[in-house]
Amino acid sequence: MEKTMNLTLKVWRQTSANAKGHFETYKVENISGDSSFLEMMDILSEQLVEAGKEPVAFDHDCREGICGMCSMTINGIPHGPEKATTTCQLHMRHFHDGQTITIEPFRAKPFPVLKDLMVDRSAFDRIIQSGGFITARAGSGVDANAIPIPKKTADYAMDAAACIGCGACVAACPNASAMLFTGAKVSHMNSLPQGKAEKHRRALAMVTTMDGEGFGGCTNIGECEAACPKSISLDMIAQLNRDYATAQVKNFFQPVS
């Protein structure tokens, strides 16, 4: 027979960006261990709607751990207690009957709360817009095999590119630093031969935007890596530091852009 559980949920409610938020406590019953965390949230929402109350607003979309839209802090950990797992892929079998679960939005000044558990992560988009691309207009690519890329380099770029842009790194960091996100993108593009031409410009522009958006600095404590649903490595931050410092040195002698 399938095991089900009853849970107490302590959920952050906030009606709009400017409103003051507070916790509310709800009970959900007969939750299947096979349900995902978001399906449990669906059940809570339906329960609230049936009672004529507004459901808890939360971001979610693909529900297979790749789009990066889901974003909530479960018992103090972004995406919850399971390692390398997004909220949508977190299953209720990892909780136990009678447990109290605290659910909060991602907390960071550059990620203002829009409503309940929804936050605005457009700061990430702006970091990318400032330099997270390789300038190659459609149709300008040379034959894909014209430039061989060592497998190791391609694998490293892929490790970095696996970032889903969910913002858990920022949410987990006590300084709300976006170094892991920015580092992953810079490492991905700066390591590929196609991205080398803009390497310095990219590092300078993206870090300037990142700082300007109000993200904090890195204290190398590694909470971001631990919270990352894609296990993006701190190596990416090291590369960002290196590339940024090199770019600054170059820029000091001869402006890079």
Partner: peptide, 16 residues
């Protein structure tokens, strides 16, 4: 060709 130019890290063989 376009995707590679844009930095898509497709799987590669040891020869690159």
């Amino acid at each position: 060709d376009q995707c590679v130019a844009n930095g898509v890290p497709f799987a590669r063989e040891y020869g690159g």
